[in-house]
Design a protein around this nucleic acid. Structure first.
Length: 423
RNA sequence: GGAGAAAUGGCAGAGUGGUCGAUUGCGGCAGUCUUGAAAACUGUUGAAGGUCACACUUCCGGGGGUUCGAAUCCCUCUUUCUCCGCCA
């Protein structure tokens, strides 16, 4: 959520920046600002009334003590009248505030100035590519054939147990999952992140604060009896640890990481690109989250980007980094880098990580703030990224490293898998 | 799941209808003293809205109610603790 004072003070700039997303913010912003005027006016009136009522209440008390009952009765009546109009005003204020809030949450974050304009994924900027694309034999198999050939993943069995998109990992396939989780966590810890094991169900307040609610309701699984949501990413619980928190300056920066399964309904995304591991309802991911001083968030995002790149490098996977254009960035982001690894048999780039700076957009809803010496609390910047999501990494690893003897495990991963080849 | 108790500022802990945004202690910050530090002493120290700045308003777990007036009374929800039951 954008900050009201920021919209008020830098109206033109906010509109200009939102244009980078091809978002015409003018009507909404005008609505927000006019509601804001109403709000302040109404509140002033209400405050004056309440002030009067407070004064009268005190006088009534004094009069009673002095035994002047009749005078007190007169004031009581006066107070009743005030109460009537103040109740009305309070209702009015509440509805204005709700309307304003509703308009406000429709505004996406303002992109950073060097986010490229554009509407579609094709307009994302390819800013880096490294690693050699694998030269596979003509009969190279896509991962969904390899997983069944070596009995690594049973998609059919998952359908039986749960439904499509809930694979069952087996044997070396299961072991590989566990190895990757540990590998990614160890890398994150070595990079200074603190490991967190959060709950994987969250309440409504948490889902709201990180922006999954209200608009992405349909994307989450909901345990209706207790009204709890299965997390779509560890970002939700790990970021919500700081909901309604005022940090001390010395506590910054906060760097947390965590492994969780992630659950996504993926409503509406059927058809192509969903075969095998490409798109699942349940998958494993290691997430990195940072909470930093507002001056430091663009340094932090570069650091996170370097971290993800170094992990992919260790896995010897060819990858590229895209700077997302305004139209392709998520609602809450000010700057996003997407990482894609090349999957040799599908001959496709697969998104395996997304690293974003949300600036104050998230912290505004979270009320995540810090205090500069002697100053007023101010909002922090939050960032997060995947480091990394497993399924597509597995797809790329399997496809790119297939040989006639079996599938080779990258060197850095062998200590974790305990085997060097899948056969 | 059953019975009882409780929820107050960073922490501890008073406060059972007006003088309470809240006694006090600890912690934090500033100062006095000191070469410096500690100790001692003095002052200061929650958040949101609002204002050029004040004023003013709201917040004592959440929501609702009673009252001229609520941290204090009532209803309700949530959470925590103790006891019992069940259990990885």
């Amino acid at each position: 959520m954008l900050q009201l004072t920021h919209i008020r003070e830098k109206t033109e700039e906010v509109i200009a920046r939102l244009a980078i997303r091809n978002f015409d913010a003018k009507p909404l912003i005008n609505q927000v600002l006019s509601l804001d005027n109403d709000r302040r006016k109404t509140q002033n009136e209400l405050d004056a009334l309440l002030n009067e009522a407070n004064i009268i209440a005190k006088q009534v008390g004094d009069l009673f003590k002095q035994g002047k009952k009749e005078d007190a009765e007169v004031l009581k009546n006066k107070s009743a009248i005030i109460k009537e109009s103040s109740t009305k005003l309070a209702e009015q204020l509440k509805s204005i505030e709700e309307e304003q809030q509703q308009a406000l949450v429709q505004l996406p974050n303002t992109p950073h100035l060097n986010v490229p304009k554009g509407k579609t994924p094709e307009e994302n900027e390819n800013i880096h590519q490294e690693g050699e694309l694998p030269k596979l034999a003509a009969n190279a198999k896509p991962h969904w054939e390899l997983t069944s050939q070596y009995d690594l993943i049973d998609f059919e069995l998952g359908v039986k147990l749960t439904g499509a998109g809930f694979p069952v990992y087996k044997k070396q396939g299961a072991r590989l999952q566990r190895a990757l989780i540990n590998f990614f966590l160890d890398k994150a810890i070595a990079a200074g992140y603190t490991e967190i094991q959060p709950p994987i169900l969250v309440n409504e307040a948490s889902a709201y604060a990180t922006g999954q609610l209200p608009d992405k309701e349909g994307q989450m699984y909901l345990a209706t009896v207790d009204n709890l949501y299965l997390i779509p990413t560890a970002e939700v619980p790990i970021t919500n640890m700081y909901r309604d928190v005022i940090l001390k300056k010395e506590q910054l920066p906060i760097k947390n990481c965590g492994y969780t399964p992630c659950f996504r309904r993926e409503a509406g995304s059927y058809g192509k690109d969903v075969r095998g591991l490409n798109r699942l309802h349940q998958f494993d991911k290691i997430e990195i989250v940072q909470v930093v001083h507002p001056d430091k968030s663009y340094e932090a995002i570069e650091e996170m980007r370097d971290h993800v790149a170094s992990v992919l490098r260790e896995l010897e996977l060819p990858f590229r980094i895209l700077k997302l254009c305004g139209g392709d960035m998520s609602f809450a982001s000010a700057l996003t880098y997407d990482f894609e690894t090349y999957s040799g048999a599908q001959q496709k780039w697969l998104e395996v990580s997304s690293v974003s700076n949300f600036e104050t957009f998230q912290s505004n809803r979270l009320k995540l703030r810090f205090k500069e010496d002697g100053g007023k609390p101010q909002l922090l910047h939050t960032l997060n990224g995947s480091a990394l999501a497993l399924p597509r990494i597995v797809a790329s690893l399997l496809e790119n490293n297939q040989t006639s003897e079996g599938i080779k495990i990258p060197k850095s991963l062998i200590p974790y898998t305990g085997f060097s080849i899948i056969n």
